[in-house]
């Protein structure tokens, strides 16, 4: 199986039972080692359902999901699939099992049967990575939402996964919490961990290598962020936003027809305007 990407989804179909309405209608997706993929789409497009297929929390009714070549439908692989692909969920209050931070981070590796000296090393390393080591003996209700989500990331990291799936993990955070998580994601990628982020924040999606747009359970667009956002018309019909920089660029283009629109940050737009004003 050498050369196969880390996660492969092949024509995944899934329905929550009932009147033949599929939450996922044949989704194919590949995530390579170390890659950052953002999945965007309107409410009810199947984003979270897809996310739960990536580590076998849900199993496809047709098609297949393979993680490092292991089929998620085979129960013998469950533990190593969960170790390979970790998940962080939306609600900060329902992910902590233990009553203090360090015990919670230890929960995953304890389940994997990691021996004790290494367990301590892993917990410390994971908590230091998310800058929460100083909070190791705090109970969860004395943490902010952003801190809880950082602990949730540490809890997954302590299992040494090859990929972390963030299922709308920032949607209940304030801007500072989001910025902290954004920095963590960048750090994860530097150390070679793949990240799949499900989000409705376009700024967050813009930081990915690749964006996959989901609508009514199918992939309707996929590509580098610049290319996806350049098709503003399609995003608008799906009820999706543009990153503010791209939206501003489109607004300027209405009056300056040759103004570039593949811009995604304050720096890029300032440079583009300054460059044109000077020439």
């Amino acid at each position: 199986m050498t050369g196969e990407p880390l996660i492969v989804c092949d024509g995944v179909e899934y329905g929550y039972g009932g009147a033949g309405d599929l939450a996922l209608g044949g989704v194919s997706l590949r995530v390579s080692a170390g890659e950052h993929v953002a999945i965007i789409g309107p409410n009810g497009s199947g984003k979270s359902t897809l996310a739960r297929h990536l580590n076998g929390l849900l199993r496809p009714s047709a098609g297949a999901v393979r993680v490092r070549g292991m089929d998620t439908r085979d129960p013998a692989h469950t533990r190593s699939i969960r170790q390979t692909v970790g998940m962080v969920f939306q609600h900060p209050d329902s992910q902590m099992v233990a009553t203090v931070v360090e015990e919670d981070v230890a929960f995953g590796p304890e389940n994997l049967g990691v021996p004790r000296p290494e367990l301590h090393a892993r917990v410390r390393e994971a908590l230091e990575f998310v800058e929460m080591w100083d909070y190791r003996d705090r109970p969860p209700h004395l943490l902010s939402a952003g801190q809880k989500q950082r602990v949730a990331i540490a809890a997954v990291l302590a299992m040494r996964p090859a990929c972390i799936v963030l299922d709308e993990a920032t949607s209940l955070l304030d801007p500072r919490g989001r910025a902290d998580l954004g920095r963590l994601v960048a750090g994860l990628r530097r150390q070679g961990t793949a990240v799949v982020s499900i989000t409705h924040l376009m700024d967050e999606a813009a930081a990915a290598d690749r964006i996959v747009v989901l609508a009514r359970g199918t992939v309707v667009a996929s590509g580098p962020p610049r290319a996806v956002f350049a098709d503003a018309g399609r995003l608008a019909t799906l009820g999706l936003d543009l990153p503010p920089a791209t939206a501003l660029a489109f607004r300027i283009r209405r009056e300056i027809p040759d103004f570039p629109v593949d811009l995604m940050s304050v720096d890029e737009i300032v440079d583009a305007v300054a460059g044109r004003a000077a020439s």
Binding site: P244, L248, R251, R254, I256, V266, V270, V273, A277
Partner: peptide, 27 residues
């Protein structure tokens, strides 16, 4: 940021519409 680079746009634009119009005019 644009004003700091010497481009004469209003510094108090609050919306994409206002900023876009000001920048287009300056260009």
């Amino acid at each position: 940021r644009l004003r700091a680079r010497g481009i004469p746009v209003r510094g108090d634009a609050l919306t994409i519409e206002e900023a876009g119009a000001a920048i287009a005019a300056a260009l």
